[in-house]
Design a protein around this nucleic acid. Structure first.
Lengths: 143, 143
DNA sequence: TCCTTTATTGCATACACTTGCAATAATGAG
DNA sequence: CTCATTATTGCAAGTGTATGCAATAAAGGA
């Protein structure tokens, strides 16, 4: 999954700028086949652009999230993780062992519809995280 | 909504201790008819127990959450908020104006059932947060 | 009531994240 | 290609949150 040149140019036409820092962060997220924490992004990108600061990483991740190019999820306690937007999915996380399972958006689509009808909200389907116990840990809990 | 003496005594029987700090924090959350951030809890409780530190507030909120007496939700960007557990509900938040709407758990019950069947997870119904645009802001977005 | 055990606190410190401001540099215009 | 505009960065400082460790004090037993 990656962000197209077209999408990036679109940012430029909105008055935003494509700096080396932003491009490096987009590249890092595109190459990662997993979620990255801000710290992980920083470590990866810092090799390429030694001048880069953590503040820029945080600002850029927020920026990309606002622009809809990146998804943010809270996957555990307080820690936020980021990934390139693309296939629409959600997460189910085991509170005991930390195991993470993806839930395709299709499974929630009907529910989102219902929610929008009921509340009048335009529900943003970007991301939801659910917590629980995976089959193995569930067993240990109850035994 | 409040936490019963019975629930508190149950903690004691598990080897946990009911310290003035914990009781003060439980009281503060019980009296609040809204979510509180850790900072808000600290400011309220500090008047009563001047010795109390922020570290204790964070530790206690985590503790109460683990014990299921308190619910935690991320309601906005990065900031976590806490409230007394009781009526099971979720939140729908407007990304533009910050307005928050409660969603009763009953509306999600069927979906949770389905999710548990499909994944084998014991889904913890504690809390889910959805983001979107409220009716008013939705209009401004599209116009 | 006093003692013992050990969960919990406070302090200090460290990590995670945000923000104001002056300096830098990406864009578009000329 | 050069210049002006102004979005973005780096720095430094500030807020929010977590944690190791010694001191404190809650709870149960004598």
């Amino acid at each position: 999954m990656a962000i197209s040149d077209q999408e990036l140019s679109h940012l430029r036409s909105q008055g935003f700028r494509l700096t080396p820092q932003r491009l490096a962060i987009v590249r890092a997220l595109s190459q990662a086949h997993d979620h990255l924490t801000p710290g992980e992004v920083y470590r990866q990108v810092h090799g390429e652009l030694p001048g880069m600061t953590e503040a820029t990483v945080y600002r850029t991740l927020n920026f990309l999230t606002e622009q809809g190019l990146v998804l943010v999820a809270h996957v555990g306690h307080g820690q936020l993780v980021y990934e390139i937007a693309g296939h629409n999915h959600h997460h189910l996380i085991c509170q005991a062992c930390g195991q993470m399972q993806e839930i395709d958006h299709a499974e929630l689509a009907a529910f989102f519809e219902q929610l929008m009808d009921r509340t009048g909200f335009q529900v943003d389907t970007a991301h939801a995280t659910f917590f629980g116990f995976c089959p193995e840990c569930k067993q240990e809990e109850t035994s």
